[in-house]
Design a protein around this nucleic acid. Structure first.
Lengths: 112, 112
DNA sequence: TTCTACATGTAGGCTGTCTATAGATAGAGT
DNA sequence: ACTCTATCTATAGACAGCCTACATGTAGAA
């Protein structure tokens, strides 16, 4: 049973991150847990993937961050910007087109 | 309207190629056309992607190829091996798990 | 004190997809 | 004859993003 991760995620990371941040602001560590939970334990995204990706999305203007201290620990909390919400909508429709296209190719056909 | 290609395909190319070769052997050029047709014109895979990928899959033992001359033109025709059929089955279930995982994360939720 | 959970972050590697380019034949149109 | 399009294979190098591994530190439980 091959892992879902490793490669296949490429190009979909942005959508995932924007999506978990849609309902509420979260910090990196919490985002990783949220992805794990929401995917039913299937998605285990390493920190070396998430933190750089978050910075990239902030750079792009889709996220904004601020530091907070909770229980003696420092967190950088990310929230969606309005541009981020627009981007998320685009990612969702892109995902629809993507799965539809791949799915129709992968559909089994009668052997000639 | 962003293109479906570019990045998102990464990690799914193998599944696509194995799938179009399931029903009948095809040569590279025909494979590209088949992908285009089956996806309803959405998937335009460049030759620089397909040919190396086919070689990689042959190297892996999932495909076998042989030269044929049709109308003065040389074609290298690829067909699925039995290992390739097994791999295709694996790719299909991986695709199911993949879309299920991403889909459940992307699903919109009520804002807190 | 040790272990686990919490929390952020970077450097470098890997690898597969894309762009761009090359070469060649066949057939239609001008 | 010439050009253009379609058919057909192929490679080199660029690019980008995900991963592994590592570094650093606090808090709380055993």
């Amino acid at each position: 049973m091959r892992d879902v991760n490793t490669d296949a995620l490429r190009g979909h990371m942005d959508a995932l991150l924007l999506s978990v941040l849609e309902s509420e602001p979260l910090h990196g560590y919490a985002i990783i847990e949220a992805l794990q939970e929401r995917s039913g334990g299937t998605l285990t995204v390493p920190t070396g993937t998430v933190y750089p990706a978050l910075r990239r999305l902030e750079q792009a203007g889709y996220l904004a961050s601020e530091w907070a201290t909770v229980g003696g620990r420092k967190r950088r909390t990310y929230r969606l910007t309005s541009a981020g919400r627009t981007a998320l909508a685009g990612e969702r429709s892109a995902w629809q087109r993507f799965t539809s296209a791949i799915g129709s190719v992968l559909e089994p056909r009668p052997t000639k």
